[in-house]
Amino acid sequence: MSVDQDTVRRIAKLSRIAIKEEQVEPMTGELNGILAWVEQLREVNTDGVPPLTSVVEAKLSMREDVITDGGIPKDVTRNAPETEDGFFVVPKVME
């Protein structure tokens, strides 16, 4: 499996990562290097082996439906570049 330059541009756009045009070629090479490395896993025969969901024998743990969190609006918005009346302020996004 490998990606071409258009795919790299598309992934960057979907992820909202700004990359300069001159970065596309080296990025494509790097990504393909990683993909080739991961591809080696294909050499292992996994016929008839169910997908592994966890390396530990664990079950999904559940919590009761009680309110134990929240009430920290200042902490939540602390890292925001801009806030107003408790809201995050972001560039205008309109449908």
């Binding site: 439906d65 009680v66 309110i67 134990t68 969190d69 920290i72 609006p73 939540v76 408790g86 995050f88």
Partner: peptide
């Protein structure tokens, strides 16, 4: 439900902005 699907923050309608948010939800 009283609390969210994956966090213990409240779900009640009409609360002050960002007052029912856990760090998981953020």
């Amino acid at each position: 439900s009283n609390s969210k699907l994956f966090s213990g923050a409240a779900t009640e309608f009409g609360a002050a902005p960002n007052s029912q948010v856990s760090l998981v939800d953020a």
